[in-house]
Structure formats: structure tokens, C-alpha cells
Write a protein that binds this DNA or RNA. Structure first.
Lengths: 192, 192
DNA sequence: GTGTTAAAGCAACTTTCTTCGCGTTTGGAT
DNA sequence: ATCCAAACGCGAAGAAAGTTGCTTTAACAC
């Protein structure tokens, strides 16, 4: 995983431990507090790290959350080639659901924290191009494939929505159901 | 907080004006600032209202946003009976997209601000039961209708997603496309 | 080992947010 | 017209967040 510019220089030492403790503290606080209540001083106290360190390294709460999200999205990166679109989609969807799960809505909150659009972030673009490649593979095999937008709206959006409105992540079962739904649509739809 | 009680008593008076100015200020600030930068003092200044008033009436930023969202969702309330499921869905989807539009993502941020789940809020429940009634009408007419979850995930989730990740609302055209997609799926899907 | 230096700790300081008591305005009722 | 109470305005005091210069720690290179 790409550790980010902030700790590239001394990845093995104290900095890394600080980062880990801070990330854990953020996630814990976010789990049972309103976003407004998650402040730098509180995170610092829970992590056992000095405030000034957090202000210098991450600047504000949004910075902290970004850092966490970027790392998690990075872990999500490799999309396997299972040979069929359905297989690829199911794996991608289930993995994504699993990544969202332990974060308790952080990714959503992160997106909400950032001013305008997540579309321009590196993580999003990277992810989008990976997914596009997956669709292209399917098309090359002659399978009927959805567009990237249809994929995002049919799979990603509902998974986020689940977390956002129900306060709990979708399980693997549900992720598979979404894939199924998307593929039924793609098969039935007139050419687009 | 209990906005209802607060303005029911004197709907035409100073309180109502204060509320209107405050709501406008919040929306304006949210439009071009990070969520963290939207603070009570700043809202108060822009609205030309004293800070203490905001603290007393709404408590914090989350309270302000809740108030706005609740009002907008309320306006959305009546779901017309057009006689066909498609007609109902399109109208509901377009209206919803229009409500989201001028708010520039506030509703999303509101959901993200609240601690765990929006599911338990009054606005959400109300809305959900309205939509369910709409589906029941269709079923009574003998139409193949999606489940409430399929509707939420097929229409609402993508509309939110659009705002959340692209930073701009979906237009009416797109809302209609989502309805189309959902109905194609419902027609094609084996019974569920 | 020893030296170098990025990063963390520390503490005082500034700024901003939040609360509170009290006086004033104002919409509605008598 | 007058009174009443709810809601707002005001300003000061207190609490919390955010900032900064300096010191100390410890990873890494030699």
C-alpha cells in the first residue's frame, strides 16, 4: 500500500506508529460521536499523541479522514480477472462492501467533508479507471457490459447509500444481489 | 430543534424572518466552504442575527442543517397519482432531483453529520411510507412493481451519489433514465 | 558507535467558539 | 390600548480550538 508522502521518509518508525494510533482513534471516535464532536484535540488525546503533531501533519479533521480513506481505497486496488463479467463484478462489489464495513461510514463522511466533488480526487480517478478496464475486458470478450456510470450507480451508489442511511454496511449477499440486478438489466436493455 | 413549535406560534413574525435569513446563510456558506468552516458565528454574521439566537434555537450546525432538510423533505411530500407506475416514479424522481439541486449537497452532508443512521428520522420514515404507498397502488393495478428497497437503491441512491461524488445534481433527464432502468429490470426479472 | 535530521513533544500564546444573565423588542391575546 | 410572554439582541466571561518557537527523541546513513 502506498503510505503517502507524509511518512515516506521514515516509514518504519515512530511516525508510522503515530499514524496508526491516530487513525484508530479517528475511527473509534467516529463510531460513536457526531462528526462535529470529532476534533483534533480529542483525537490527539485518545491516540496519546500531541495536538501539535496532528495539526502539523494533517491540518484538520478532513485531512485525517482523507488519509484513512486514501489508504483503504488503495488496499482495494487490484481487480482480479476471473474470466467473466459476473465474476469480476461480484468480487469487486464484495470487496468494496467489506472495505466500507469496518469503517462505519467514514468514507461517506469524508466525501461530505470535502468541499465540492470527490470526482477529482486521485483515489476516485484511479478506482474509476480500474473499473473501466474491467468493463473493457468484458466487452472484448463479447459480453454485454454496462457503462461505467451504470456500474457506479447500480453497485457503488447503493452500497454507499446503505451505509449512509441504514448506518450499517451491506453484506456480501446484498452485494451479489446488486450485481445480479445490474446484469439482468444489461441483458434486457435495448442497445444503448 | 423543535422548529415546528418554534415557528408555529408566530409564523409571520420576526422569528420566521430570522429563520429564513439563517437558512439562506447556511445554504450560501455551504455552497462554497468546507463543512468545517461553516460555524455558528459565521452563519450568524452572514445572516445578521445574533449568535446567541442560533445557539439557543438550533444548538449547533447539525441542528441548522436538520431544520433545512426537514423543511425541504416536507415540501416534497405529496406524491401524485398519475395512474401509472412509470408516471408516478418519474414525477417523484424528478421532483426529488429538483429538491436536491438547489441545496448543493446539503442533504447529503446532513445525513453525514448525524451520528449513525438517517433511517430513524421522521423525514425518512415519512418519505418511505409515501413511496411504499405509491408502489402498493401500482401493485393493486396489477403492474409489476419493484420493492421499496429496489426503488431506493435504483433511484434515490444514484441521485444522492451524483451530488456526493460529482458535486452537481442529476438533471430531470437523468432522473428519467434511472426510472427507465429500474422498470426494464422489473419487467425482466424473474419473480421475486 | 556517532552524526544528522525529520518528526514528535512541550508549553505558552492567540484566536475562535460557546454560554449566560439581563434588558429590549414584538407578535398575539385580553 | 395595554399586557404578557416568547424570542431576539447585547456584551462579557469562560472554554475550547488552533498556532508557534523551541527542545527532545529516534530512524537512518555512515
Amino acid at each position: 500500500m502506498d503510505d503517502g508522502a507524509a511518512i515516506k521518509k521514515r516509514p518504519g518508525g515512530r511516525s508510522a506508529q503515530v499514524r496508526a494510533r491516530v487513525q484508530a482513534a479517528v475511527i473509534e471516535l467516529l463510531a460513536d460521536h457526531q462528526l462535529e464532536e470529532v476534533t483534533i484535540p480529542r483525537v490527539a488525546e485518545r491516540a496519546g499523541v500531541h495536538q501539535a503533531t496532528l495539526y502539523r501533519r494533517w491540518g484538520n479533521v478532513a485531512g485525517l479522514v482523507d488519509d484513512i480513506v486514501a489508504e483503504r481505497v488503495g488496499e482495494l486496488a487490484p481487480i482480479p480477472d476471473t474470466g467473466t463479467l459476473r465474476g469480476d463484478l461480484e468480487l469487486a462489489a464484495i470487496r468494496f462492501a467489506e472495505v466500507i464495513a469496518p469503517l462505519g461510514g467514514i468514507m461517506i463522511r469524508a466525501a461530505a467533508l470535502a468541499t465540492p466533488n470527490a470526482e477529482s480526487t486521485v483515489s476516485f480517478r484511479t478506482r474509476a479507471s480500474q473499473l473501466q478496464a474491467m468493463l473493457d475486458r468484458a466487452a472484448a470478450r463479447g459480453e454485454k457490459a454496462p457503462t461505467l456510470t451504470e456500474l457506479l450507480e447500480g453497485i457503488t451508489a447503493p452500497l454507499y447509500f446503505h451505509e449512509l442511511f441504514f448506518g450499517r454496511p451491506a453484506d456480501a449477499e446484498h452485494a451479489k444481489a446488486l450485481v445480479d440486478r445490474l446484469l439482468i438489466y444489461v441483458e434486457a436493455a435495448p442497445d444503448r
